[in-house]
Amino acid sequence: MRAVVTVTGSDRRGVVAKVSNFLFERNVNIEDISQTILGDQFAMIMMVDTSESKIEFSALAEELEAKGKEIGMTVRLQHAAIFDAMHNV
């Protein structure tokens, strides 16, 4: 299943490595990744495939959220379909 991981916050040090590694350990494949700075905020957006994930989607979302707290960032995992629906006709 295609999903989007977004990471936002003010501290960018090691964020890509930490989140990527976290996803790798759970067998979630990263298909695309991009980063941007919005004012003093760092934002990273990852397109991932969760179909081979070791754990089910909502548990993965909860673990990612917890990981975010651990590294001082806000991390979300959402179905890609919500962005598709809202921004593509």
């Binding site: 989007v4 977004t6 936002t8 695309d32 991009s34 941007t36 919005l38 934002a43 957006i45 397109m47 979300r76 890609a80 919500i82 962005f83 598709d84 809202m86 921004h87």
Partner: peptide, 12 residues
């Protein structure tokens, strides 16, 4: 891939 603006707009 979606553009940044779209993804972040939804989240906002």
């Amino acid at each position: 891939m979606f553009n940044h603006t779209d993804v972040l707009e939804t989240i906002e």
